Simulated assay, not measured.
Amino acid sequence: MTIDTQSRITLHFELAMDDGAVVDSTFERTPATFTYGDGSLLPGVEKKLLGMCAGEKKDFVLNPEDAFGQPNPANIQHFKRDQFGADMELAEGMVISFADAQRAELPGVVQSISDDEVVVNFNHPLAGRTLRFTAEILKVEAVSS
């Protein structure tokens, strides 16, 4: 059986930077299982799995558009330093959790700090990066509707 849009898939995967640094991998852990289109994998990754079958292993190049997109300059926000607690120690690269308008958690990375301003980047850390995705399909099942 090959993967289509009505499949439940069990696989091992590895997501790596183009220099080979591994971001995430299940090859030394329990394999991942998901239903096509359930949001577990990025849509650009799912599309590359279409047509694969159990026992197949492939490496894919993920351009930013297939992965986390391009960085959006509007996602870089400038805050007054006094909006952060005086006792809060800030450092470049630090991840701070903010709440969006719906009170959902929104992580941001401190990009720079001055006496008056803190610049926070809300883009995904992998935005703009070309990545490598390796998939080894272990099982493909039809999803009953």
Rank of each mutant, 00 (worst) to 15 (best):
V61K: 13
L126A: 06
G85F: 04
V45A: 15
L42P: 02
T35Q: 12
T30W: 02
G37Y: 09
G51L: 03
E105L: 13
A54C: 08
Q6N: 15
L49P: 01
P71C: 11
D19K: 01
F79W: 15
A135L: 04
V120A: 05
I76K: 14
M88F: 02
Q111K: 13
A74V: 01
P31I: 00
S7T: 00
D116N: 12
V61Y: 11
T35E: 14
V118D: 02
A99S: 13
T26K: 05
L11C: 14
H12A: 08
P64Y: 08
F84Y: 09
T130R: 15
R81G: 07
D100H: 09
L131R: 04
E92A: 10
E65S: 12
K57E: 15
P125N: 08
I137M: 06
V22I: 15
D100M: 11
G39V: 01
L138V: 02
H78F: 11
I113Y: 06
I9L: 03
K48A: 07
D24C: 00
V140N: 09
S97V: 09
G20F: 03
R129A: 09
A135P: 06
K80G: 14
D87R: 10
I3V: 14
L106R: 15
N72L: 11
T30A: 15
R103L: 15
L41H: 02
E92K: 13
G37E: 09
V120K: 10
A21N: 13
K80V: 03
G55T: 08
S114G: 10
G108H: 02
A32G: 06
S144K: 13
A104T: 06
R81I: 01
I96P: 06
N72I: 01
F133N: 08
R81M: 07
V110A: 12
V95Q: 13
P31Q: 08
T5W: 09
T130A: 09
